[in-house]
């Protein structure tokens, strides 16, 4: 595998007495599609939350592209090129699909309050971004939803749009929290095909939490298994699936 783009070193996060994470070390290589699995409450979402700046870790470090990023605020982490999605999709319901995508690019001229009233200052940039957004939406078969409200979308489409929101900013790494939850089996496979396609065509990196192992395992290069805030196992999908510790953790929970 290539060099790691995201590294987590001895990461711990305690909530009072609850050790949601307790010394996790792992790395995500560039252009990898990496899985993160574990029983409920094993600390997967917490790991994402610490990496993306939601929480300050109790101990440990997070490195992204040679830079230490733990303790940064979520917006700063995003601007470095790390995009996350949520377990429950969080699009903006009063904006259309297009606007949801248009919102993301950072440092838009028209986002500054003093330039915002003067259309001519940002009109070109806005149109340019709109063309880019439409092109992206079309590329992934969502062209017809440009004007749709978020509430009119299916769960799978919402999850795709959450990812496309990152694409327009040229973000490199995507942390997806249960992208296939609540999605029909075939759609889930389509979603993961989409992810693979992004990796192959755009050279992006994915780090994916997923409970639906039957889908996940067919698409990932490497898997980490969390259990009670610690790394239980890691390896290629088939190695992990045959690891007795993993089987026990999943059955014995």
């Amino acid at each position: 595998m290539t060099k790691p783009i995201l590294e987590v070193k001895d990461l711990a996060k305690y909530f009072g007495g609850v050790k949601a994470l307790d010394g996790v070390t792992l790395e995500v290589p560039e252009r990898g599609v990496i899985g993160l699995i574990g029983p409920n409450g094993s600390g997967k979402t917490t790991l994402f939350n610490v990496v993306t700046g939601f929480y300050v870790p109790t101990r440990g470090e997070v490195w992204y592209a040679g830079e230490r990023i733990d303790g940064l605020n979520p917006n700063e982490v995003f601007l470095k090129g790390l995009v996350r999605t949520f377990q429950i999709p969080r699009l903006f319901p009063s904006l259309t699909v297009l606007e949801n995508v248009l919102l993301t690019p950072p440092r838009q001229v028209g986002e500054r309050v003093l330039t915002a009233p003067f259309r001519s200052k940002w009109e070109e940039q806005e149109k340019e971004l709109a063309r880019k957004a439409v092109a992206l939406l079309r590329k992934f078969g969502l062209g017809e939803y440009v004007r749709a409200r978020v509430s009119e979308l299916s769960a799978a489409h919402m999850k795709m749009i959450e990812t496309i929101r990152g694409l327009i900013t040229d973000a490199r790494v995507y942390l997806l929290d249960e992208p296939a939850a609540g999605v029909a089996y075939t759609t889930a496979r389509e979603l993961f095909t989409f992810i693979r396609r992004l990796r192959d065509e755009e050279g992006l990196t994915f780090f994916i939490i997923e409970h639906r192992l039957e889908v996940l395992m067919d698409f990932v290069d490497y898997v980490y298994v969390l259990h009670n805030g610690r790394l239980l196992s890691e390896g290629k999908p088939d190695e992990v699936m045959s690891d007795p510790k993993v089987i026990e953790a999943y059955i014995g929970r």
Binding site: N73, P74, N75, R90, S94, L95, L103, A116
Partner: peptide, 21 residues
């Protein structure tokens, strides 16, 4: 304007807006 778009995003879900940079 794009600024208005940001305002509505903050109104809808400020945490998500923060995560969108």
């Amino acid at each position: 304007s794009p600024f208005g778009r940001v305002l509505k995003a903050v109104r809808d879900d400020e945490v998500a807006a923060l995560c969108m940079g």
